[in-house]
């Protein structure tokens, strides 16, 4: 063993990172090569299945055809971006749908977990809290196929809701497969699936608030509602800001799998979003370059939004995702 063949230096036993200068590269390599070997399978996987595809985005600037291959495809500059610049109607439709769904999600999917976490936090009984949490977390672990199937069984034409309405002579409602309600349905599904999950970080932040703050507020005569306003909400402010920033980065990616699964029933006008547009256009219609271009723009806009929102958060004195 290389490690054992020499006495261990003082530098290595320091708890913090030792200065690389003091132990030579060669000696460190001889000392650590087995650790490197451990990291190799994962590293190779990351390079092949993560970084190589990341480079594969160059087909956005190429005229890619599956039978030619990426390397041999001719360069076409920014031609593939013309669908975005010239405003291809299908692309614009997808963009508008994406933004509308994102806005609805910001209005419902984001605040509902906060409200529910506040409500849960105000409960005295720990057991009650835990029970409710256990129940509400569960849907997060189900796949979209299962969620969509469950919703169809609940709200479909022969589902639970309509069965109930028919039995009590209340008529029937068409929700599943109705293009006019599609966006609301999508948002409702996300609320059902992820409200519980969304509460976790807020609840954790609330549990870190110093109880003395509440006591002081109560002594000053603050009602429970005022305590929430003046103690709890400021206490979770930075977590809310953080999650809001991250959410902004996802403004252009809404429910890909979820929507893809339900598109057949309502048609593309109501349901096409950017992610499904990219997918359908490439794998379905074979315009790989243009789809990759759209996907690339989407990714860049997402990163830009996060950076921008982070900047705004800094202006308001919040920590944001990272610090300068």
């Amino acid at each position: 063993m290389a490690v054992l063949s020499r006495p261990r230096g003082v530098v290595e036993t320091l708890p913090t990172r030792p200065a690389p200068r003091r132990v030579g590269r060669g000696r460190r390599l001889r000392r650590d090569w087995l650790l490197l070997v451990c990291a190799v399978p994962g590293l190779v996987w990351l390079l092949v299945f993560h970084y190589a595809p990341l480079l594969g985005n160059v087909i956005a600037f190429k005229d890619y055809q599956p039978y030619v291959g990426i390397a041999d495809a001719p360069w076409v500059g920014f031609d593939n971006f013309s669908i975005i610049v010239n405003g291809d109607p299908a692309f614009l439709n997808a963009l508008v749908n994406t933004l509308v769904i994102s806005l609805l999600q910001l209005l419902f999917v984001f605040p509902i977990p906060i409200a529910l976490a506040l409500l849960l936090n105000s409960l005295v009984s720990e057991r009650m809290k835990r029970t409710v949490q256990s129940i509400l977390y569960l849907p997060h672990f189900l796949s979209w196929v299962i969620i969509v199937a469950i919703f169809q069984h609940m709200l479909g034409n022969t589902g639970l809701l309509n069965g109930f309405l028919t039995e009590h002579d209340l008529g029937s409602v068409s929700i599943i497969g109705n293009p006019e309600l599609f966006k609301e349905l999508v948002v409702a599904q996300v609320v059902w699936k992820d409200t519980g999950w969304g509460m976790i970080l807020f609840l954790a932040a609330m549990s870190r608030i110093d109880p003395e703050l509440y006591e002081a507020a109560a002594v000053d005569g603050a009602s429970r509602l005022r305590q929430v306003w003046h103690v709890t909400l400021p206490g979770i402010k930075s977590v809310v800001a953080l999650l809001l920033i991250l959410r902004l980065g996802d403004v252009l990616s809404v429910g890909f799998e979820q929507i893809l699964l339900q598109q057949n029933a309502v048609g593309p006008t109501a349901s096409e979003v950017l992610d499904t547009y990219v997918f359908n256009n490439a794998v379905g219609a074979g315009s790989w370059g243009a789809s990759a271009a759209a996907g690339l723009v989407k990714g860049v806009v997402g990163v830009a939004l996060v950076l921008g929102a982070n900047k705004v958060a800094h202006l308001f004195g919040e920590r944001g995702v990272y610090q300068r």
Binding site: L54, I59, V278, S291
Partner: peptide
């Protein structure tokens, strides 16, 4: 790798190649 995901199309092409 946590910050940037490769995107659907390049991923598909990698698996295909």
């Amino acid at each position: 790798s946590v910050l940037f995901s490769p995107g659907i199309i390049p991923m598909y092409l990698t698996v295909k190649e």
